[in-house]
């Protein structure tokens, strides 16, 4: 991480803290947006390998439900334990689904992910006794080391964002991370270098599921409730578009994309609930047709112009 990028991150963090201090409402919105950003980062990892998941809500929701079950069954209220439960349940689910789904590409990968998430959606809705059906389940007000954290959740989310972003930055610079881009352009060569493409995708899928679960658990704790809607494809759509809008090319991209999108969603839910999907659709068209690199591509544009002039 060098120069301008590091500075950008520091500014971002400072801005987030300032906004959060200004009002509890803003800190709630930011917490949810950043939590979704973590999940979008997971989607972006898959995009890097040329795979588009239309069902990442599965892990986002699994994170939320994992935390809710820990609270419901064992009466746990400790924030870190709840987070751990969410992260773990999504990762384990990711290991299972990933083992099957990394064999598929293109639209098959997209739709099978969607189908997996929708199977869970319909089961969670129907198995009322086990899941609370469409009413969902409540989460307790979390404690941290016995203390009521208040705004602590926001700072914990921010910390998660920085730890994950930093870790992912290094992961993407490793041979494995570079291998993801290689999968997108030429799988056969990668196999002929002695690398198992599906093995690499499997590891990547599990990481992406874990990120989804972490984000889902954070958001669920912030909201204090989980419902089957979390599994629904519209959630997946938001995660995917946050990633695409921000751009899979950088670690910061999905967070930027999700902040923007969550802002639009909040505005839409207040003023024009029937325009939210349309707004997402327009984002999708804009990204696909005009700025394939997303917001992080726009950040890099001046550099590209400079290069073009030279």
């Amino acid at each position: 991480m060098k120069g301008p990028r590091a500075l950008l991150w520091v500014c971002l963090a400072a801005a987030a803290v300032a906004v959060a201090l200004a009002s509890p409402w803003a800190s709630f919105i930011l917490t949810v947006a950043l939590a979704k950003g973590l999940a979008a980062l997971g989607v972006a990892l898959l995009l890097r390998a040329g795979l588009m998941s239309l069902g990442h809500a599965l892990f986002y929701a699994a994170g939320g439900y994992g935390a809710a079950y820990l609270a419901r069954w064992l009466g746990v209220t400790d924030l870190l334990l709840l987070l751990g439960a969410g992260f773990l349940s999504a990762t384990v689910l990711g290991l299972f689904t990933g083992a099957v789904l990394v064999r598929y590409r293109a639209i098959f990968f997209a739709m099978l992910n969607l189908a997996a998430s929708m199977v869970f959606f319909s089961l969670v809705t129907k198995l009322y006794n086990l899941t609370g059906g469409s009413d969902g389940m409540p989460l307790p007000v979390p404690t941290m080391f016995g203390l009521k954290p208040g705004q602590g959740l926001f700072y914990l989310t921010l910390a998660c964002v920085f730890v994950c972003a930093g870790g992912l930055r290094r992961y993407l610079d490793s041979a494995m991370g570079q291998g993801l881009g290689a999968i997108a352009t030429n799988e056969i060569r990668l196999e002929y270098l002695g690398i198992s493409v599906n093995g690499l995708l499997f590891v990547n899928y599990a990481i992406s599921a874990g990120l989804g679960g972490l984000g889902g658990a954070l958001a669920a704790i912030a909201i204090g409730h989980v419902t089957p809607e979390l599994f629904f494809w519209t959630t997946s759509a938001q995660l995917l578009l946050g990633a695409a809008l921000g751009g899979a090319g950088s670690v910061a991209g999905p967070f930027a994309g999700m902040l923007l999108l969550e802002g639009v969603r909040t505005a839409a839910s207040q003023y024009a609930p029937l325009l939210w999907e349309m707004a997402m659709g327009l984002c999708a068209l804009a990204v696909a047709l005009f700025v394939p690199q997303g917001l992080s591509g726009i950040v890099d544009l001046p550099q590209q112009w400079k290069r073009a002039v030279q």
Binding site: A106, L240, L275, W276, M278, G281, L282, A284, L285, P292
Partner: peptide
């Protein structure tokens, strides 16, 4: 231009038409 662009475009149209 690859599958992702195509999937994003048709998915975008899907989202727009859903609200329409």
């Amino acid at each position: 231009r690859g599958e992702i662009a195509q999937m994003l475009v048709t998915f975008g149209i899907f989202l727009i038409l859903d609200d329409v």
